[in-house]
Design a protein around this nucleic acid. Structure first.
Lengths: 133, 133
DNA sequence: GCACTGCTTGACGTTAACGTAAGAGAGACG
DNA sequence: CGTCTCTCTTACGTTAACGTCAAGCAGTGC
C-alpha cells in the first residue's frame, strides 16, 4: 500500500471497477501498469488516466475515443495542435450529447402525451366496469 | 398495391425500414404477415403494429418490451388489468428516460465546464507560443 | 509440506438489432 | 426460352465492453 504504487485490488476498491476491467483497459492500451514479478502495479499516472477514462465514459465517449484523447495528451509535442484537436473532439461530443438530449426530451413529451390518453382510457374503462356491475 | 395488403418492398418504402428488419420482426413475433405463395403480405394490422414498434423504439423500449406491450394489447381479455400493466410499464419507462436525461444534462454541464477550462488552456498556450517566436 | 489467498494469462460467452452474402424459386416480359 | 427482378431461407458476421470460466504460479501462515 505504498503511496506511489497500487495493486489491482487497491485500484478496484478505490475506483469501483473489476480486475477484468483494469486488465481490459491495459490490453486496449489505456493503462500501462508496471510489473513487479508477475503482478501489476498501477502508478500515479495510471490513476490519473483511469480517472479520465471514467469521466470520459460519463461523457459518452467510447474507449477508443478516450484512448485517442489520452494519446493526444501524451504526445507532448505540437501541443497546441493536439489540444485544439482534443478540444474539437470534445466540442463535437458535446453537440452530439445535446442533440441526444433534445431527442430524448421530444420522446419524453411524446410519451407523456400518450400517457395522458392512457389515463383517460383506463379511467373510462374502469368507470364502465363499475357501471356494469 | 391493394389498399389492404402490402408487399415487403412497399412496406420498406412506406416506413423506411429494410426487408431484413421486417423479416426480423416477424421472426421475433412482432409482426405476422400472411403468405401468398411464398411471399409475405403485410396487413393493416401489421402496419399498425409496425407504427407502434417504431414509436416504441423512439421511446427507448427494447424490441422484447415492445413485443410484450403489443401482446398485452392483443389479449383482448381482462383488459382493465392489461391496460393498467401497459400503463405502468410505460410510466416506468418514462421515469427511466427522465433519469437518463438528467444524467445527460449533468454530463453536458460537466463537459461544458471542462471546455471552458480547455479554451483557457488553449488560449494561454497559443499566447505563449506567439510570445516564444 | 500444505492449505489458502491473490494474482496471472488465455479464451470463449454475452447482448441487441439487425447486416450481409449465398443460393435458389417464381412470375413477368419480350 | 432466356433473362430480369423480386423475394425467399439459411446462417454466419458485427460491435462494445467487459463477464466468466479454467488452470496455474507465488507468497504467507502454520
Amino acid at each position: 500500500m505504498s503511496e506511489e504504487q497500487m495493486t489491482i485490488r487497491e485500484m478496484c476498491d478505490a475506483y469501483d471497477v473489476t480486475p477484468r476491467t483494469l486488465r481490459f483497459y491495459e490490453s486496449k492500451e489505456l493503462l500501462f501498469p508496471i510489473r513487479e514479478g508477475q503482478k501489476r502495479l498501477f502508478t500515479k499516472r495510471d490513476r490519473a488516466r483511469l480517472k479520465l477514462i471514467l469521466r470520459g465514459k460519463r461523457f459518452g465517449f467510447s474507449l477508443e475515443e478516450i484512448r485517442q484523447l489520452l494519446d493526444l495528451y501524451d504526445m507532448g509535442d505540437q501541443q497546441a495542435t493536439q489540444l485544439q484537436r482534443t478540444y474539437d473532439v470534445a466540442r463535437q461530443r458535446l453537440q452530439d450529447m445535446e442533440e441526444q438530449r433534445d431527442e430524448l426530451n421530444e420522446a419524453i413529451d411524446d410519451l407523456r402525451e400518450q400517457l395522458k390518453w392512457g389515463e383517460q382510457i383506463i379511467a373510462d374503462f374502469e368507470k364502465d366496469l363499475k357501471a356494469a356491475q
